[in-house]
Structures are given as C-alpha cells and as structure tokens.
C-alpha cells in the first residue's frame, strides 16, 4: 500500500518535471532578448508587430467562423440522429472520427487537387473562396471534438420528451431548435467551441498549404528567422490554450451546478 503510494508520487513528480521544465525553459529563453538582463522585450516586439496582429486577427476570425459553421452543422445533425434516425448513429460517429485518423495534410492535399482553379468547384481560385475552404477544412478538423461534445450534451437531456413537450405547446421546428434544444446544450457547445478555438488558432498545415495569412504560418516564419520571439510566442500560445481550457472548465462546472439540485 505504502510502496504503491511512493511509486505514485515518483511517477507524478517525474511527470510534472517533464511537463513543467520546458515551460520554464521557454519562459526563461523568452526573457533573454536584452543582453545581460531579463526583459519582456521579446513580448513587446511580438505584440508590436503588425504582422502578428493581422495574422492573429485572421485566425481568430477563422476560429469564430469555424465554430459557427460547426455548430450549425453538428447540432441539428446530432439532434436529428438522436430523435429520428438512431440507426445512423454508428455511421455518423464513424465519419466524425475519420479526421482523427486521416492526417490533416492528406485532407488538405485532396482539397487542392479537387477544388483547383480548373475544377467544377474552383474554391482555390479567389482569396475569399479559399478563406471559405479553410473554414471548411477547420470544421472537418474540429468535427470529432464538436460532435462528441454536442452528442454527450444531447444525451444528458431527454431530447425526445423536450421536443414532444414543445410540439404539444404548439412550437414549430425553428422554435424547438433555437429556443429549446440549443439553450439546453449551451455548455456542451461552448466546450466544443473553446476546444475548436484552441485547435484552430495556431493551426499551421492547412493554412500554410492553402496559402492564407493565418497565425500558424506566421509562427513558422518567425520560428525560422528569429531567436527570442518564438519563445515569447510559445508562451503566448500556451496562455491562449490554457484560457480556452479554463473557460471549458468554467462552463462545464456551471452546468453541473445547475444540474445538481
């Protein structure tokens, strides 16, 4: 018993070291920009860089668009599967898990081939169309997280009874979906949304191969050409990810408190 606990402590401490040391190393490195003393110069340079602002804003916008499209795609589907087509559940689940198995670089390569400027659907022909294609590619990327979060949320409420109760009171389908179902899975959607945000904000492969001015390619460019700024950017990215996870926890907990009494 005691021996097992000592083993558990050792495992935990070693794990903590492995995970914390790189963060300390990165933070320390990011402070070294000014010769001979620690300073936040690297952060000042990064935040002051118009490229940083522009690419970060672009990726934020992409993330928001991804969340909106993802929610509009996933929520009605998950709802409908639960309500009317439970037999299709395995098929839909399989499809939503595919992006975890097919590498993103393969998917985007397929886009480039399929939607090139001479195809029926030339989505890479103009910048706007490519932006849209990038959004769709991010929706694909986020599909596993989004679908799972929403599906779990929908399972927790009794969709059928809620729908029948609403129908009984004379509500139409838009009312049911937007006023009854959506509010009840709001925290699940928010969890999926923040996770999506964390995934999309620094995404590199798709943005780079579709040639869009996103935050990921910017990071890559800085990483290849500068010394201290990458560390500062890594810390910033870590904080952003942490904030997203923190928000998921906050909203996840809010739901539990509501469900408790």
């Amino acid at each position: 018993m005691n021996q097992a606990r000592i083993g558990a402590w050792i495992a935990t401490i070693l794990g903590a070291l492995y995970f914390v040391v790189p963060l300390i190393g990165t933070f320390e490195f990011s402070l070294r920009m000014r010769r001979g003393e620690y300073s936040f110069d690297a952060y000042r340079v990064v935040f002051g860089d118009p490229q940083f602002q522009a690419t970060f804003a672009y990726s934020t916008l992409q993330a928001l668009a991804t969340i909106v499209v993802g929610v509009l795609l996933v929520v009605p589907t998950a709802y409908w599967i639960q309500l009317r087509l439970p037999k299709l559940r395995p098929v839909v689940e399989f499809i939503t898990l595919m992006p975890l198995v097919i590498p993103a670089i393969v998917i985007v390569f397929g886009y480039i081939r399929l939607y090139n400027s001479s195809s029926i659907l030339p989505m890479t022909a103009s910048a706007r169309a490519t932006d849209l294609l990038l959004t769709f590619s991010y929706v694909t990327l986020a599909l596993p997280y989004m679908y799972r979060a929403v599906d779990t949320g929908l399972r927790a409420i009794d969709v059928r009874t809620l729908t029948e109760a609403a129908e009984n009171l004379g509500a139409g389908w838009p009312t049911i979906l937007f006023k009854v179902i959506l509010p009840n899975v709001r925290s699940a959607i928010l969890s999926g949304a923040f996770l999506t945000f964390a995934v999309v904000i620094g995404e590199f492969t798709m943005a780079s191969l579709l040639n869009r001015p996103a935050f990921g390619p910017y990071l890559q460019n800085i990483g290849a050409n500068r010394a201290y700024e990458p560390s500062a950017l890594a810390i910033i990215a870590f904080v952003v990810t942490w904030a997203c996870m923190g928000l998921i926890n906050v909203f996840g907990r809010g739901k539990q408190i509501k469900a408790a009494p």
Binding site: T26, A198, F204, L219, P230, A234, A237
Partner: peptide, 10 residues
Amino acid sequence: NFAGLPLAFA
C-alpha cells in the same frame, strides 16, 4: 492541445 509550432519552440 499545445502541439504544433509553439511546442517545437518550447
């Protein structure tokens, strides 16, 4: 979720 480029930098 802390993968990709920032992880490499770290």
